[in-house]
Amino acid sequence: MAYPIIDSHIHLFPGSELDTLAWNNPTNPLYKQHSLAEYAAATGSPSNLEGFIFLETDRKNDLESGVGDGSGWEMPLLEVEWLKRIALGTPKEGEGHTEADKKLCLAIIPWAPLPSGAKALEKYVSEVKKHAGESFKKIRGFRYLVQDKPKGVMLQDDFIEGLKWMGKNGYVFDLGVDQHSGGKWQLEEAVAMIEKAHDGVPEAEKVTFIINHLCKPDLAVYNQTDPAFVAWRTAMFTLSKCSKTYMKLSGCFSEMPDTLKNAPVLEIFAALQPYLVVILATFGPFRIMFGSDWPVCTIGVNDAWKKWKEVVEKFCYLASLTQEDQIMIWSGTAIKAYGINELM
């Protein structure tokens, strides 16, 4: 059965703004336009693809100047304007999307200056509102990538106060940590951060955490007694016990060895099975959501979007998930976590 699909994690950027991306350069395989025309080609535009959730693309910024006059927010706000054109169906020539594509944009998660504290965050969100215009209602939360930041950043008082402000104002926080490249301390800090952000906060005002990419474990590790796997599994159990936490079933190609990336779907599934079993046992289908991490998933992988969809389909089938469970993974959890039903 073809269930409705919401891709909970994609990135988009026009060719005219490539140099605003902090991580991109002419030698990068993603140094070209990745808009909805390219996304449609990658997915094959299946009839059951209901839409996507856009995640910020780590545009260049300067937090210090942003605290004062906001000049350090220029490029993240430029991204907000780019998404506004997609969400409202008002493209510029050559941007790779059309008026009809606006229905696919279900939610927008821009960058936000979390380390600058609650006051700066409030000022920044007011600027986002100006730049987003009518598309502001689709901004359901924010992300500040911590996976490449030094130890302690996500435990700073200003960071925690910013998270509390987001929860009080109904925004979710997309959490991107990286055990594979960053180390298990990132998982430990993530747990401590969530506890601090929720401490003393009424349940209704606690910020929702949507965790990206299974926290990026090293998927070259197949031995379940390996210390790296044990540390990851322990963190998943701990994170899942925190209230208002969700997990994205996404981003796995980036953490696979090259030999696995282009292996048959059954081989990929077999390698991931220990990780998928843990995610299902900890978060359950009502807190897991499908996401592709397009176009990052395409690096070194042929037909990445379609292949990942097949892996998740195999997971749902072999886990004997009910129809209700599968609907939640493919779209229901994303609708619930991001509050998309409020827009429908």
Results as ranks from 00 to 15, higher is better:
5 I>L: 09
14 P>K: 02
14 P>R: 00
18 L>E: 03
23 W>S: 09
24 N>D: 09
29 P>S: 09
31 Y>F: 13
34 H>A: 01
36 L>E: 00
38 E>C: 13
39 Y>S: 02
43 T>Y: 13
46 P>T: 13
46 P>R: 12
50 E>R: 13
55 L>N: 07
57 T>W: 03
61 N>H: 15
62 D>A: 14
63 L>M: 04
66 G>A: 06
69 D>L: 11
69 D>S: 09
70 G>I: 13
71 S>K: 15
82 W>S: 04
87 A>Q: 03
91 P>S: 03
92 K>G: 07
101 D>N: 05
107 A>K: 01
114 L>H: 01
116 S>D: 08
121 L>T: 10
123 K>C: 12
128 V>D: 09
128 V>E: 09
129 K>C: 07
129 K>Q: 11
131 H>Q: 12
132 A>F: 03
140 R>N: 04
143 R>K: 04
146 V>R: 00
149 K>S: 08
155 L>R: 02
156 Q>I: 00
160 I>T: 09
163 L>A: 08
163 L>H: 03
169 N>L: 15
175 L>G: 02
176 G>C: 15
181 S>K: 12
182 G>R: 08
186 Q>H: 03
195 E>M: 03
200 G>K: 04
200 G>I: 05
201 V>G: 09
203 E>F: 15
217 P>L: 03
224 Q>A: 03
235 A>N: 02
238 T>S: 10
238 T>A: 15
242 C>L: 10
242 C>M: 15
244 K>C: 00
247 M>T: 05
251 G>V: 05
256 M>E: 08
257 P>Q: 05
259 T>A: 14
260 L>H: 01
261 K>Y: 02
262 N>P: 01
269 F>L: 09
274 P>T: 00
274 P>H: 00
277 V>R: 06
279 I>N: 05
280 L>T: 13
283 F>S: 06
285 P>H: 13
296 V>Y: 02
297 C>D: 05
298 T>S: 15
299 I>E: 12
303 D>R: 04
305 W>G: 01
306 K>R: 12
310 E>N: 06
317 Y>L: 12
321 L>D: 04
324 E>Q: 08
329 I>Y: 06
332 G>D: 08
336 K>S: 15
